[in-house]
């Protein structure tokens, strides 16, 4: 009985993560986009907490704490800060319209169920859903990076991909070894800082963070 409830809650969190990702794809403004990233990270943290509690794996608590501190609070603040320092517009800068991107996201979901199918035979229902959802979030995040022209939006796409990856790691194998998780957090953190520096530089050179200006290096 208790197992079923836990399974349902894990499922719920994972689905909410996907939902926030899809909503993020449909956003046209920067501020709600950053809030959605916060929300997605919060669901990841809750999911990690449930998994840690139910499986008794203590190091997932650490991962849960890191997610909560870094991804729910610190990184969104950092993105706000970068946005304030550079005159990023409130628009996200689309190269493919919202309906088109949403349709493509739907296709990504179907695709992810298709490609994970061979892996599912050996798994429980909960793990199955989480794996497919994790791959969907990865793919949608990638899609977001490809279809947006704004430096900050591209960064958020990367961070959302990373969240999808952690969802897969937690649900599938009850987290990777702690060192990998900490390494990954550290890496993302530094990457965001550096991306911030370069967004600032792009802004200074081109007077905008619209990366479609970055078309000088061509054959």
């Amino acid at each position: 009985m208790e197992n079923a409830i836990i399974g349902n809650m894990i499922d719920l969190c994972a689905v909410m993560m996907l939902l926030t990702t899809v909503l993020a794809v449909a956003m046209t403004h920067m501020k709600p986009l950053i809030r959605l990233f916060s929300a997605q990270s919060l669901f990841l943290a809750v999911l990690a907490l449930i998994v840690a509690y139910s499986s008794g794996t203590s190091h997932i608590y650490i991962m849960c704490g890191l997610t909560l501190v870094l991804k729910v609070f610190v990184m969104p603040r950092m993105l706000w800060y970068i946005m304030d320092r550079i005159n990023v517009g409130r628009e996200v800068g689309l190269s493919l319209g919202i309906p088109g991107t949403l349709l493509a996201s739907g296709l990504m979901m179907v695709l992810s169920y298709y490609i994970t199918e061979p892996l599912l035979a050996t798994m429980h229902t909960v793990e199955r859903n989480c794996l497919a959802l994790s791959v969907s979030i990865l793919l949608i995040g990638l899609l977001m990076m490809c279809t947006r022209k704004n430096a900050i939006t591209e960064t958020i796409g990367l961070l959302m991909m990373e969240n999808g990856l952690f969802l897969g790691a937690v649900a599938l194998s009850h987290g990777m070894p702690l060192i990998v998780e900490i390494a990954a957090f550290f890496d993302v953190m530094v990457a965001v800082i550096i991306i911030g520096i370069f967004a600032h530089r792009i802004n200074r050179s081109f007077n905008s963070v619209d990366t479609s200006f970055l078309r000088r290096l061509r054959e």
Binding site: S205, F206, L214, R216
Partner: peptide
């Protein structure tokens, strides 16, 4: 800090 180098570095890190 030229425009082209910034663009190259951006593409590289992303």
């Amino acid at each position: 800090s030229r425009e082209e180098s910034t663009e190259a570095a951006w593409k590289y890190i992303i």
